[in-house]
C-alpha cells in the first residue's frame, strides 16, 4: 500500500533529476568548451551550426547545444532554433537515469542498446568523447570512474580542480542569467 503511494513520487523525482541533470550538462558543455583545449579540438571537427540534442524518447527531457564554431558550444535549453542535426536518444527515462546517476557508463549504455543515434555516427562518437571529458572534469574521480570507460591518466588533480571550478562558476552564472531573464 505504502509502496503504491510512494512509487509515483519516486518516478516523478527520477524525471525531475534527469531534467535537472540535462540542464546542468547543457550549461556545462558550453562551459567546458570555453575552458578546455582538448574539448575544443574535438568539437572543432563538427560542422559550424551543428545542433546536438540529448533527449529521452518519446518527448521527455532534453538538452540542446549548438556548435557555434571554433570548438565552442552554446546551450539552447530544451528548444531548438531549427531542425536537430544529431540526436542521442534514450529509449526510456529509466535508462537516462542509469547514465545520469552514474550507475552505467555512456559507452555501456550504447552497448546495452539503451540509446539510439540519429545523425552522423562519427559526430556522435566525438560528442561522446566530449561528454566523457566533461564528466572527468566535473565529477569526483571515484564517481567519474563509474561514468567513463577509462579515467584519463593525464588529468591530474590541480588541472581538474581549476577547470572544474571554472566550469561550475560558468554553469552557476548561466543559471542565474536564465532565472533573471
Amino acid at each position: 500500500m505504502l509502496r503504491k503511494r510512494i512509487q509515483p513520487m519516486v518516478l516523478q523525482a527520477r524525471r525531475l533529476y534527469v531534467d535537472i541533470m540535462f540542464q546542468v550538462m547543457g550549461r556545462a558543455l558550453q562551459a567546458v568548451s570555453e575552458v578546455d583545449e582538448t574539448v575544443q579540438n574535438d568539437a572543432r571537427a563538427l560542422p559550424e551550426g551543428l545542433l546536438f540534442e540529448m533527449m529521452v524518447m518519446p518527448d521527455g527531457p532534453r538538452l540542446i547545444v549548438e556548435h557555434t564554431g571554433n570548438g565552442h558550444f552554446h546551450y539552447h535549453g530544451e528548444s531548438a532554433p531549427r531542425p536537430i542535426d544529431l540526436s542521442i536518444q534514450f529509449k526510456h527515462i529509466a535508462h537516462a537515469f542509469l547514465v545520469l546517476s552514474f550507475q552505467e557508463k555512456t559507452a555501456e549504455a550504447f552497448a546495452h542498446d539503451r540509446m539510439l543515434v540519429d545523425g552522423d555516427l562519427s559526430y556522435a562518437v566525438r560528442m561522446t568523447r566530449v561528454l566523457n571529458r566533461l564528466e572527468a572534469f566535473i565529477l569526483p574521480k571515484l564517481i567519474a570512474e563509474r561514468a567513463v570507460k577509462e579515467y584519463p591518466a593525464s588529468l591530474h588533480l590541480p588541472e581538474k580542480l581549476v577547470s572544474a571550478a571554472r566550469i561550475y562558476l560558468k554553469v552557476a552564472t548561466n543559471f542565474v542569467e536564465t532565472v533573471r531573464a
Binding site: A45, A107, F110, A111, L121, S122, A124, V125, R126, T128, V148, K149, E150
Partner: peptide
C-alpha cells in the same frame, strides 16, 4: 579510426 562508430564498443578507451 577515432571517429569510427565501432570504437565506442572497444573494451578499452
Amino acid at each position: 579510426a577515432l571517429d569510427d562508430g565501432s570504437i565506442m564498443f572497444n573494451p578499452k578507451e
